[in-house]
Simulated assay, not measured.
Amino acid sequence: MNFQPSPLQALILWRLLTSEGRAYLTDIRPKPKRRDREALLEAKFIEEQWRRKPQGSRAIYVQLTDRAWAWAGEHMDAKLSHRSPAAGPILQSFLARLQPILQSRHITLAEIFSSTQAPPPSEDSEQQLREAYFHLSGGERNIRVRLAQLRQQLGAIPRPRLDELLLKLQREGKLVLSPLDDSREILPEDQKAALSVAGFKRHLVYMQK
């Protein structure tokens, strides 16, 4: 079944998404009409069950399914209803969720909404990175170099582009990004320069090739 939610149904889905995919029916705004609930249930985008609320009364509890999460991830450009006053609070909740993620990954709103996309890392950028690394390592491979020092040397390369280059070279096996295991060694500049990989901070670079 190739189900495509209506603009109002899509807005309801986003309301649930911003509350970790679940909410009591009475708390959902815009309030789902019966036909919208039935359509989402039939498409297996939501599940419902009766639960007892903290106050003691029983109410319908709505949860998104994996299918709904997958649809949302692939249809972030889906048309949403602009008639419902609930759209504003949903947007505010979405932005509040997005902010700490952007901050932790050092992504600015300008990078997302700018009309020009940053070009991918070039061979010239890679050469600059190698020259900076070997300058700091005394010309040796597999010597730990602080990422903070590299960033200082490569200040002309925008941080998002440098991060992308570092991750690309790690995937290719040309370098390794490592954490500082001894917390006593981590300086404020190390914290600021760290690159998050799989949820863990990396402070050091080891050039392999």
Rank of each mutant, 00 (worst) to 15 (best):
P89T: 04
D66L: 15
P54T: 03
L64E: 11
S81W: 04
S137R: 05
Y206V: 08
E185W: 03
V205Y: 09
Q127L: 13
Q99P: 05
L177W: 02
I46Q: 15
R161I: 12
L11A: 04
E185T: 06
Y24V: 06
T18K: 06
L195N: 02
S125W: 05
L147P: 03
Q128C: 06
A132D: 06
R29G: 06
G73N: 15
L177P: 00
S93R: 13
I143T: 10
S93P: 06
W69R: 12
Q152W: 11
I107T: 02
S125E: 07
L166K: 00
G139M: 15
E172W: 08
L109F: 01
Q153D: 14
E126W: 12
P7M: 14
R35D: 11
M207L: 10
S93M: 12
F113K: 02
T18F: 11
D27A: 10
L102P: 02
L16G: 02
L40E: 06
E164D: 05
E172S: 13
G199S: 05
Q149S: 15
L147W: 01
I60L: 15
K174F: 03
I112S: 00
Q127C: 05
R130E: 02
P85I: 07
S183C: 02
I101R: 11
A118E: 00
I101M: 14
A86Y: 14
A68Y: 04
R146I: 11
L187A: 03
G155A: 13
F3L: 01
Q191I: 10
L8G: 05
F113G: 00
A110F: 04
G139F: 14
D27N: 15
R83Y: 01
Q9E: 01
G155P: 08
K31L: 10
P100S: 15
G173V: 06
R161A: 07
R29L: 12
Q149N: 13
A87R: 13
R51Y: 12
K79A: 07
S104V: 07
D190G: 06
D163S: 00
I186S: 04
Q63S: 15
P85G: 11
E20S: 08
H135F: 12
Q63A: 14
Y206K: 08
L95T: 09
P158I: 00
A198K: 01
H203S: 09
M76N: 07
Q208M: 11
K44F: 09
Q49G: 12
S125D: 10
T108Q: 08
S19Y: 12
E123P: 04
Q170A: 03
